[in-house]
Amino acid sequence: MREGKREPARWIFSKELRETTVIEENTEGEKMRSMFLTPLGSIGRRILFAGKVTNQREDEKSIRLTVSDPTGAFYLSFFERDFNQNVKRQLEKIELNQTVTVMGRVSHYTGEDGKILFNINPELIYETDAESMNFWNARTAYLCRRRIMRIKEALKKPDISTGVLTASGSTEDEAEGILKSIKAYPNYDYTKFEEVLTSLLFNQQISQNINIAKDGILEFLSSHVDPQGIKYEEIVNELLKKGISQNEVDEALNVLGHEGDVFEVSLKRYRKI
């Protein structure tokens, strides 16, 4: 790490950090710094992630949050003795089930079973929306896949160097992390991580289609007014023209009914409220 340059925050999923078993100890001046080395080659002390607040605890000495992304959970702690009271004010605004983006420093400790466990000391936390969350998921998945692809290519060439990796498009940080992770995690199963990424992106696409279906249903019901309600079959046929499946229409109707935007007048007949 160059002196005077702040370390970048690594975009990371919970699964990647949770499966990390290697901590590097580096000396900076008179201080010893711990840095995580993940199976996918991320090296650092700071991370950036997004997720939903699934647990929240506060007492006189601390504020603790659990933030879950599509692959698992991050655990955050802020203590009263921490100097950054601006972070405390940010945390006090956060509520259960909100979607948030977090940047923070990673600390670790070893459990009784010898497993390394991680805690995040937040430096920044703010509420985010579904669109931003989807972008974060897609971008982080892309970065993960990019590193996995380059690790697999590197494994085919035992004599590969940092120079070869950077020449093929990797940054210096990526190249360093890839070579270190190959040595540190010789038996890591990248296929399982790829399966998680594929499932995540597939579910995200379904979620996006449901939002499109919701908009399409509301538009159709607005332009086709009938006191007795519009037939379910008519709604399905209209949305099929836009590439939305019947299952996605069903899910969208359930969501719209729950949100109070659509009313089922009688069996299989719907009207916009």
Rank of each mutant, 00 (worst) to 15 (best):
M1H: 13
M1I: 10
K5I: 03
P8D: 13
A9D: 00
F13V: 02
S14K: 00
E19R: 00
T20H: 06
T27N: 11
G29F: 07
K31E: 15
M32G: 12
R33G: 09
M35G: 06
P39T: 11
R45Q: 15
R45M: 15
L48N: 15
L48V: 15
F49Q: 09
N55G: 14
E58H: 12
E60I: 12
I63W: 05
I63Y: 10
T66E: 07
V67E: 11
S68I: 00
D69M: 08
P70D: 08
G72I: 08
A73V: 06
F74C: 03
Y75M: 11
L76K: 04
S77H: 13
F79K: 09
F79D: 01
E80S: 13
R81E: 03
F83S: 15
V87L: 07
R89A: 13
Q90V: 06
L91Q: 11
L91F: 05
E92D: 00
T101Y: 13
V102Q: 04
V102H: 09
M103T: 14
V106R: 10
T110W: 15
T110K: 11
G111D: 04
E112M: 14
E112G: 13
D113W: 02
I116K: 09
I120C: 02
L124N: 14
Y126I: 00
D129P: 04
E131W: 07
S132I: 08
S132M: 13
N134L: 04
R139M: 05
R139H: 13
T140E: 09
Y142H: 02
R145F: 01
R147L: 01
M149E: 08
I151A: 00
K152R: 11
K152N: 15
E153K: 14
E153W: 09
A154K: 00
A154G: 07
D159M: 09
I160T: 11
V164L: 03
V164H: 12
L165M: 02
T166E: 06
S170M: 06
T171R: 02
E174N: 11
S181G: 08
S181I: 06
Y188V: 06
D189L: 01
D189I: 01
D189R: 07
F193L: 04
F193S: 00
V196T: 01
T198H: 03
L201H: 04
Q204Y: 05
Q205A: 01
Q208R: 12
N209G: 05
I210C: 00
N211M: 06
G216F: 12
S222A: 15
G229P: 10
G229R: 09
I235E: 06
L239S: 09
L240A: 14
G243P: 12
I244A: 14
S245R: 14
N247G: 12
E248W: 15
D250A: 07
E251Y: 10
A252C: 12
L253N: 03
G260K: 10
V262H: 02
V265G: 07
S266G: 08
I273M: 11
